[in-house]
């Protein structure tokens, strides 16, 4: 027995069991669960997954953004040509401008309406659970399905919305006209994501300390003053979180286009042009350059907002 253990540990066979127990090499399991390495044990599977599914495609994408490749034959290194082409590509620039327009419209609308409804729903009222439950529904439906549904509902001749408008004497609205189509896309997006803002802000309002507001009331502060000087500053970290998350998601807006205009009538956004270039034309190199640009744009915008968030939380000055 001692001899076996000694072979395993390469330790003097004359040592007693007790002494061996003290100096023997720890097992793999013991190493993995030791205080020193446990954090890595937990992190490594995740890091491996990230490496395979995030970093590898990212580097692959960066690599191809410097090449011309149509998924046939060898990729041809062309340096910065794809990036130069992108800067001179009118369609790409228009898509970028539209994306920023959608970004601003949606975030402003979602925050304004979301905050209004959150303030309204922050009171006790009859049927509040039903109203809140129903309000969550748009978030639970797949975005692509929603876009197809809205496409039918907003159809000019047969759509339910125009039928209702006609029935009440308001006349038809041409929702997908070149003048309106981008706003219609915004409308669908806002309708779907409004509950997200409402519930995040509602949760924030519910967690605000009551004593501060009671003190303000005692001091005779008006409702508007209290909202401006207390509610809004206290909610600002949550507002920043909404802005950061929605910025990331809106730059990648794709589904509402797929089921409706397919990028037509002046609604082509950044992600659609990337999709069209990389997965319809299979111009992988140029599509990759566009995707990398989109990624760095998101990172840059979010970095600025994250800094603002940290400031609002008082983490940095």
């Amino acid at each position: 027995m001692n001899a076996n253990r000694a072979r395993e540990t390469l330790i003097d066979p004359t040592l007693s069991d007790q002494a061996l127990a003290v100096v023997r090499k720890p097992s793999v399991w013991e190493i993995l669960t030791s205080e020193k390495y446990f954090k890595w044990t937990l992190l490594i599977p995740l890091l491996l997954l990230l490496l395979v599914f995030m970093l590898y495609p990212l580097f692959y994408c960066i690599y191809y953004s410097f090449h011309e490749w149509g998924m046939q034959g060898d990729a041809l290194f062309i340096g910065l040509k794809n990036y130069r082409q992108m800067l001179h590509d009118g369609s790409f620039m228009e898509a970028l401008a539209r994306t920023l327009e959608v970004l601003v419209i949606c975030i402003v609308a979602e925050l304004a309406i979301g905050l209004g409804l959150a303030l309204l729903w922050n009171r006790e009222f009859k049927g509040q659970n039903i109203v809140r439950g129903l309000a969550l529904l748009p978030l639970l439906v797949a975005p692509l399905v929603l876009s197809l549904l809205w496409n039918f509902m907003l159809e000019y001749d047969f759509g339910a919305v125009n039928q209702i408008l006609t029935a009440v004497g308001l006349g038809k609205v041409y929702w997908w006209s070149p003048q309106f189509a981008l706003f219609t896309i915004c409308l669908i997006t806002i309708w779907q994501w409004l509950p997200f803002s409402i519930f995040v802000l509602l949760a924030g309002l519910r967690s605000l300390p009551r004593d501060v507001f009671e003190a303000a009331k005692v001091d005779g502060a008006s409702g508007w003053y209290t909202f401006r000087r207390l509610t809004l500053p206290m909610l600002s970290p949550l507002i920043m979180i909404i802005v950061v998350l929605r910025t990331m998601w809106l730059i990648r807006l794709f589904d509402p286009l797929y089921g409706t205009t397919r990028g037509g009538v002046g609604t082509e956004l950044l992600d659609w042009i990337v999709y069209r270039t990389a997965f319809v034309y299979f111009d992988v190199g140029y599509g990759s350059a566009m995707a990398i640009f989109s990624l760095f744009l998101t990172i840059a915008l979010c970095a600025v907002m994250f800094r603002l968030l940290m400031k609002s939380l008082g983490v940095i000055k």
């Binding site: 000019y156 997908w176 006209s177 037509g264």
Partner: peptide
């Protein structure tokens, strides 16, 4: 119809 501007075969 103005709806033709975004129409596919089904419309």
């Amino acid at each position: 119809s103005p709806g033709c501007l975004t129409a596919n075969f089904d419309f």
